[in-house]
């Protein structure tokens, strides 16, 4: 049985969907961030597998930049969560509907 690119793409789509559903269902902002990471992982898998199928290194270059952006996003997002949680302990995203400090 040969592993074709369609297997990887299917897995990537399923993983992306799981991340998206988690983002919609969960209320803890930290877990929502983890679901975003799952979605980014799914996209990375898609990039690498399509790059492999087309014989192009561009997919892996894109994944490199996605990784950097994910790291920066996590740093800023967790900073925001820390700043919020310090003022209102145990806040879920449903409590944070006012955009002013």
């Amino acid at each position: 049985m040969d592993v074709t690119v369609a297997w990887y793409l299917t897995l990537g789509a399923v993983l992306f969907t799981l991340g998206a559903v988690g983002l919609l269902v969960r209320r803890n902002p930290l877990v929502m961030f983890m679901c975003v990471e799952l979605m980014l992982n799914a996209v990375n898998l898609t990039f690498v597998s399509l790059g492999d199928a087309l014989g192009d290194l561009g997919g892996q270059v894109s994944v490199f930049f996605v990784l950097v952006v994910a790291a920066a996003e996590v740093v800023v997002g967790l900073g925001i969560i820390v700043a919020i949680m310090r003022r209102r302990s145990g806040a879920t995203v449903d409590d944070l509907s006012v955009l002013r400090g």
């Binding site: 793409l9 492999d52 192009d56 290194l57």
Partner: peptide, 19 residues
Amino acid sequence: LLVAVGGPTGAPATNAPLG
């Protein structure tokens, strides 16, 4: 994604070959 396999975007690139 599955349409993309071998579809119109399936032209193999040559500028950055995959080792």
